[in-house]
C-alpha cells in the first residue's frame, strides 16, 4: 500500500458503472503535476460494484485508489456524495482535488468546497504549479475574452474543475493494484432528494470533444439543406459536426453540438469552420485546436484572426468540390 494519500486527488466520476472520460484526462494532468512536485496521485471512486474500474484508474496514472463501495452510493445523489468526499478530505488532508466540470462535478465540487471551507475554481483550461506547492488555476472569464490565474494560498485542498476534452489522458500502462476500501458512514435520514428515474441515450455521433476532426458550421450555412454539406464533410473524416449558436437555434444542429462559451470546448487535431463570423463566444471553444481552417465569404471575417489557413469564398462553391477531392484521395 503506498502510504501517502495526501497528494493530488482526482474524483473518478462514474455513472451506471461507466467511467467518465474526464476522470482519465484529469489523471493525466495530475500525474504530470505530481511528478513535478514529487507527490502521489490518488483517485477517489464512489459507487456500488465498481471496484473493477480501479485498475483503469491505476493504469492511467493513479498511484492508489480509494474506493467507497456502498449500495447507497450506487446512483449519484449530491448529499451522500458530498458528505463522503468531505469526510475523506478531513481524514487524508490532500493538497489538491480535481474534478470534472460535468453535470455532476459542477454540482458536487462547490458543495464539497463549501463543506470543507476551501477555494474552488471553475472550468480551468490549464493547471500549473507555482511557488510553495501552489496550484495555479487558469480560467477564462468574461465569455473567454480574458484569462485569469487563480490561486488558493491558505486553504487545502486546492480545488479545481476542468471541462471534458481539455486535458489529455495518458496511454494505459499496467500498474500494480493499490486499492483501499473506505468505510461509508451515512445517516439514515437527511440525504436529500431521492432519485426516481435516470434516463440516458447513446449519442449518435462521436462526442465533439473526442473527435479528431471537427467540422463546424455557422449562420452562414443558411439552410437545413446546405447543412448536410457540413455533415458530409465531417463524415468523410470520421469526425464530428459542431455549430455556433444560430444553427442550434434554427434546429439544424443539436444543443450538444454547440461550441463556445455556453457550449463545448474542443481541441481536435483539425477544426474546419464554415460560415462562422468568429465572435469571441464561439472562438473560446475552439482556439486551442491544433490546426484551424476557415471558410468565409467576408474578407474581413473575425474568424480569420484565429485561423491557420483562410479561404475567402462562398462555401457553396468550395465545399462540394472539397468533398469530391477528399473522396477521390481517400479512394487512392
Amino acid at each position: 500500500m503506498s502510504g501517502d494519500m495526501n497528494g493530488i486527488w482526482v474524483f473518478a466520476e462514474q455513472r451506471g458503472g461507466e467511467l467518465h472520460e474526464v476522470s482519465l484526462e484529469l489523471l493525466g494532468k495530475a500525474r504530470e503535476l505530481a511528478d513535478e512536485a514529487g507527490k502521489k496521485v490518488t483517485a477517489i471512486l464512489l459507487g456500488h460494484d465498481i471496484r473493477s474500474l480501479s485498475q483503469l484508474l491505476l493504469n492511467h496514472g493513479a498511484d492508489s485508489v480509494l474506493v467507497g463501495d456502498d449500495p447507497r452510493l450506487k446512483t449519484y445523489r449530491l448529499i451522500p456524495y458530498a458528505r463522503v468526499m468531505a469526510s475523506l478530505v478531513h481524514t487524508y488532508d490532500p493538497e489538491i482535488l480535481l474534478m470534472g466540470a460535468t453535470y455532476m462535478g459542477v454540482e458536487l465540487a462547490p458543495r464539497v468546497a463549501a463543506k470543507v471551507r476551501t477555494g474552488l475554481s471553475a472550468h480551468c483550461i490549464d493547471l500549473r504549479l507555482g511557488e510553495k506547492g501552489q496550484l495555479l488555476q487558469v480560467v477564462p472569464g468574461w465569455g473567454g475574452g480574458v484569462i485569469a490565474t487563480i490561486a488558493c494560498p491558505d486553504h487545502r485542498p486546492q480545488m479545481a474543475t476542468v471541462m471534458p476534452g481539455i486535458m489529455k489522458a495518458l496511454s494505459a500502462i499496467e500498474r500494480e493494484d493499490t486499492v483501499k476500501e473506505i468505510e461509508i458512514d451515512l445517516p439514515e435520514k437527511g440525504l436529500g432528494p431521492e432519485v426516481l428515474e435516470v434516463k440516458r441515450e447513446k449519442p449518435d455521433q462521436l462526442p465533439l470533444e473526442k473527435a479528431e476532426v471537427v467540422v463546424a458550421g455557422g449562420w452562414g450555412i443558411g439552410s437545413q439543406e446546405d447543412w448536410k454539406m457540413i455533415e458530409s464533410l465531417a463524415e468523410l473524416f470520421g469526425g464530428s459536426v459542431g455549430a455556433t449558436r444560430p444553427p442550434v437555434d434554427e434546429g439544424w444542429a443539436e444543443e450538444g453540438q454547440m461550441i463556445g462559451q455556453s457550449g463545448k470546448t474542443v481541441r481536435p487535431k483539425l477544426y474546419i469552420g464554415i460560415g462562422i463570423s468568429g465572435v469571441m463566444h464561439h472562438v473560446v471553444g475552439m482556439d486551442q485546436s491544433e490546426h484551424i481552417i476557415t471558410i468565409n465569404s467576408d474578407p474581413d471575417a473575425e474568424i480569420f484572426d484565429t485561423s491557420d489557413v483562410i479561404v475567402v469564398e462562398d462555401f457553396r462553391k468550395v465545399v462540394p468540390k472539397l468533398i469530391d477531392e477528399i473522396r477521390a484521395r481517400l479512394k487512392k
Binding site: 490561486a151 488558493c152 491557420d308 489557413v309 483562410i310 468540390k321 472539397l322
Partner: peptide
C-alpha cells in the same frame, strides 16, 4: 475569500492566417 486572483490578461490568438488564393479548383487542391 479562499481563492485569490494571481494574474489577469486579455486573451490573444496567434495564428498563421495564411490566405489561399487562386481559382476555386486551386483552392480546393
Amino acid at each position: 475569500s479562499p481563492t485569490k486572483m494571481a494574474g489577469i490578461e486579455l486573451r490573444r490568438f496567434e495564428r498563421a492566417r495564411e490566405k489561399l488564393d487562386g481559382s476555386v479548383d486551386e483552392i480546393v487542391e
